[in-house]
Write a protein that binds this DNA or RNA. Structure first.
Length: 527
RNA sequence: GGCCCCAUGGUCAAGUGGCCUAAGACACCGCCCUUUCACGGCGGUAACUCGGGUUCGAAUCCCGAUGGGGUCACCA
């Protein structure tokens, strides 16, 4: 039993701010994985809830080439989500550097310390030899473990082997009996038999640390009080605890959060479609929706609420309400939640968020002039509860920006083919033309009056008009659309439609827009 | 395969021995609202993996089986 891994342990470094210190330690793979984002979120929330600090550390010991770009990508996405770190890249902090690639001397010194203590030793076995022995063990049905033969090397042996040109690795002398116990804040007590461990590698022959070693040296060096990470690391934990013990260091508290799985219950990977938050960002999901959705994947509040703001979350998050079972992420629910945020956030903010999507589709300039911005804001007010992602905006709004919008064949068929449709449009157009003011109330009053006089159903006039001026059968209320378009464009479109009806077609095809599509996202939503 | 974790509806989940003839949300179906599509409202279909225990009583505790997942590198 390790008493030191209890949650209520004291701060090992009172001189550092925050009693609680947690970290998110991604490797720079080029994007922020959805699972990583949730791990980061849980850490961030835990720190906030406990008045602690959230540290970002980049685990780039094996990603020499594109570290900078990847880091930029990850940090910018984290900022976009609102997960600001207290210490880390760009912000710095008292226990940096926050890139593992810049901490090599720290690992080397730590390695020397273990070697001096006799807790670790050099091993000159080559990868080829090890692979060979592993295969042989497998063939004999034995566990492929390193046999510890280099533990017994003499100084002469080492000189000789080095003279052969062999570069050694550093291995830890692991206990051959007993048990290592992980007191996990989420899983409870987890016991591992030490016999399953072999003398694993701490430092590679190129002088770099292995993951487990770097992780321990850094978590200790950065004074982490809690290590909150994905479940897949649970089986690494006994190794890490043994490293802490070899140094004589305090062990932090561990909390292994359940994994996020793909719909087929396997580990989330690229073949499942969208796996990075950047992809969702591009498809028009809002950060608050992603955060809200992600936190509910594995955590639930005491009340039955489903929608909580980040501030609320920061006040209420707790590790003891994190569930133990892996969760499958459901794009449907995320999309629903996104729709919820689209229709409830501040309209000006929604407008700002929408702008880039419209610009990318070529519907508006970038930047937009104030008048256009106002126009877009008004459109959004009428349209916001009809879209679930920002990515749908270009298609849903084309006809406000262009006159070459296409006509839905079914809509035309249904509402613009009857012989008197053209006449009806003409009559209505004349009515609208005579209006003193072209506002929502006047338009509606005019139409209601006309409908009454003609003795027809509202839809008989409203539907044809809608298809004529928008090309489609759905959208905001007709009078909203009319006033948004203005008198001139409304009347012009009605006149043009009447002409096409009389000519018997043809009706323009829908224009092609560049709409960002996330693989796997759109497909599964279109049910 | 060894080791470890997990197991309530299609999905996320509440539930910590009696309040469970098991909440809520998404999705789905129906109805209502309505000029369309949405939004919203109302209602419905749908679950405690199985087998043993413990107990007066088990979704809740224990054991086993089954299933799913993770992990077993000089990757992180």
């Amino acid at each position: 039993m390790d008493e030191r891994s209890k949650a209520d342990r004291t701060d090992p470094r009172p001189d550092l701010p925050g009693a609680v210190r947690v970290r998110f330690a991604p490797s720079p793979t080029g994007y922020l994985h959805i699972g990583g984002a949730r791990t980061a979120l849980f850490n961030w929330l835990f720190a906030a809830r406990n008045g602690g600090r959230f540290i970002l550390r980049i685990e780039d010991t094996d990603f020499s080439r594109k570290v900078e770009d990847s880091t930029r990508q990850i940090t910018s996405t984290m900022r976009w989500l609102g997960l600001q770190w207290d210490e880390g890249p760009a912000t710095g902090g008292p226990v940096g550097p926050y890139f593992q690639s810049e901490r090599l001397d720290l690992y080397r010194r730590a390695a020397d310390e273990l070697k001096a203590k006799g807790a670790a030793y050099e091993c000159y076995c080559t990868p080829e030899e090890l692979t060979q022995r592993r295969e042989e063990a497998r063939r004999l049905g034995q566990a492929p473990r390193y046999d510890g033969r280099c533990r017994r090397l003499t100084d002469d042996d080492r000189r000789r082997l080095a003279a052969e040109g062999r570069r050694p690795v550093l291995r830890l002398k692991t206990p051959t009996e007993g048990q290592t116990v992980v007191e996990d804040l989420i899983r409870g007590t987890v016991v591992f038999d030490n016999t399953i461990l072999d003398d694993f590698v701490l430092m590679k022959s190129d002088g770099g640390p292995t993951y487990n070693f770097a992780c321990v040296v850094d978590d200790h060096g950065m004074r982490m009080t809690h290590v909150i990470r994905a479940d897949e690391h649970l089986s690494n934990t006994p190794k890490q605890i043994i490293i802490y013990r070899a140094f004589g260091w305090d062990v932090p508290a561990f909390a292994h959060v359940p994994m996020i799985l793909a719909p087929d219950r396997s580990k989330l990977s690229k073949r499942h479609g969208a796996t990075s938050v950047e992809e969702f960002q591009e498809a028009g999901y809002l950060p608050e929706a992603i955060v809200n959705y992600l936190v509910f994947l594995g955590w639930s509040p005491e009340g039955g609420e489903e929608v909580l703001s980040a501030d609320e979350l920061r006040r209420r998050f707790s590790l003891d309400r994190v569930s133990k079972n892996a969760a499958i992420y459901d794009i449907n629910k995320l999309t629903w939640m996104n729709g919820h945020y689209i229709r409830t956030i501040d309209l000006d903010r929604l407008t700002d968020l929408a702008l880039p999507f419209l610009a990318r589709a070529g519907l508006v300039g970038d930047p937009v002039d104030p008048a256009t911005r106002g126009f877009i804001k008004a459109i959004l007010a009428a349209l916001r509860d009809r879209v679930k992602t920002l990515g749908e905006l270009p298609d849903a709004t084309v006809y406000f920006f262009r006159d070459d919008y296409g006509f839905d064949p079914k809509g035309v068929q249904k509402h613009l083919t009857s012989p008197d449709a053209a006449g009806l449009l003409d009559t209505a157009r004349a009515e609208l033309a005579g209006l003193a003011r072209f506002d929502l109330e006047s338009c509606e009053a005019a139409y209601r009056g006309l409908i009454e006089r003609l003795g027809i159903k509202g839809g008989a006039l409203i539907h044809p008009t809608r298809v004529a001026i928008t090309g489609r059968t759905n959208g905001p209320g007709l009078f909203d659309v009319m006033t948004l378009l203005g008198r001139e464009r409304t009347l012009g479109r009605m006149e043009r439609a009447a002409a096409v009806i009389r000519a018997g077609g043809p009706w323009p095809e829908p224009v092609a827009l560049e709409t960002p599509v996330v693989p796997g996202v759109d497909a599964s939503r279109r049910v």
